[in-house]
Write a protein that binds this DNA or RNA. Structure first.
Lengths: 217, 217
DNA sequence: ATTATAAACGAACACCTGTTCGGTGTCAAA
DNA sequence: TTTGACACCGAACAGGTGTTCGTTTATAAT
């Protein structure tokens, strides 16, 4: 049975059993728990199925360790069961100043926000900033919002970035388009006009905007 | 030791050990795992501390069950370790139509979004809607955003609600202020003016806006 | 009918895991 | 000094848990 073939009915039931048991108890089931749930009387047969599921990447196991089963990332995705990622909140984003430069080598982080992997997608190089002030209205971003950024110094055409405009001394969040010798910065608010920067050296990409979260008060 | 006294240094280390082990392995530590981590050589001494933590409500245990430990809700909160809540996505929100009425008695839900409890706060009666169109720009809400709503037919002054304006046949998201005989609807965009509804019977509260999530493309 | 494969069966084993029980050491208060 | 509370120790026990090994059953292909 190759990894591309559909899961058997029983394998699906085993995965669901692991997910539900985890949710309810906070720890994974034993092979005998699983057997009782899906109607297999022999622990070795459950082991056989767990090996299949492990080979196909839906679970991971720690051998000889009691309850040593966990859902893999793809297993969790299949089951609609998400895990939590801790994103460091590094400071604020405001129009009149550049955003903080993240140092991911630091292990000791202060403030964090916990988000599910499913709404984040790729979690590499992410950090969070709190929005301060109302000068980002053109990006449909409100004072107090949290912006999730990916640390990068370059973005593709059409991606939304935190841009530091050197001559203006100003941070702005806009979609960036490199057009020949100049840069077009397009607001998220579709009723507003773009701005054009003739000298690309004035445009400093500080990060890519991945997500905006607003907790309404 | 009463429940109101601070945790000892060692108890804090044990809680952190449980959280970290869970995150890394996907299952809780054994008493011997915990002992090795925090420098206690006897499993019965670990048991003693786990009993203290259980009595004070930070963990729950299933007796005689291997790795039968879970963080309680308050334990998880203390540790900044969040659990995941599944919010049903019931449909769309667009200006020209009323929003779907949630039926929480239905157990079988279709689409959901998984979010952490920590960014949601009180999770009662929550559901999600996808924003369609650009007619909610005055609420700083963008086509494609996800809005988290709480089902309610009334809101306090100053709370942001999905309001169905009966005579206009239009949904709008604004802060609601009941002022004598009329209603003031204030946009989230601070540069925009409020609208006033003289006849409160034209104002139908469909839900309270709790959160906005934008996954930037 | 035969063969191969997958998926189950069951018994037994090794060792992991929580628990019990009795004890020691430290500290503070009387 | 004595007492009590707290927090640890260690040995041993009971049973829980994963694993091994050989067997059986069902199904599909030849």
């Amino acid at each position: 049975m190759s990894a591309w073939e559909p899961l058997t009915e029983r394998q699906q039931r085993i995965l669901a059993c692991i997910r539900d048991f985890l949710r309810e108890r906070g720890y994974p089931p034993t092979v005998r728990d699983i057997g009782r749930e899906v109607g297999i009387s022999s622990p070795s047969a459950v082991k056989y199925q767990l090996e299949q599921l492990e080979q196909r990447g839906f679970i991971e196991r720690d051998p000889r360790s009691s309850r040593g089963i966990r859902l893999s990332a793809s297993g969790a995705r299949l089951l609609g069961s998400d895990d939590v990622v801790s994103i460091p909140i590094l400071g604020i984003i405001a129009a009149g100043e550049p955003i903080p430069v993240p140092d991911f080598s630091l292990r000791d982080v202060g403030d964090t926000i916990e988000l599910t992997r499913g709404i984040l997608g790729d979690i590499r190089d992410l950090y969070a900033l709190r929005v301060q002030g109302d000068s980002m209205i053109d990006a449909l971003i409100h004072d107090g919002d949290i912006v999730i950024m990916r640390h990068t110094r370059q973005v593709e055409n059409g991606e939304m970035a935190a841009v530091w405009l050197r001559d203006r001394g100003e941070t702005t969040l806009k979609r960036v388009y490199w057009e020949g010798g100049r840069v077009r910065l397009q607001p998220a608010n579709p009723t507003m006009s773009p701005i054009y920067i003739d000298d690309p050296r004035q445009v400093e990409i500080q990060g890519k905007v991945m997500m905006v979260i607003r907790q309404v008060r």
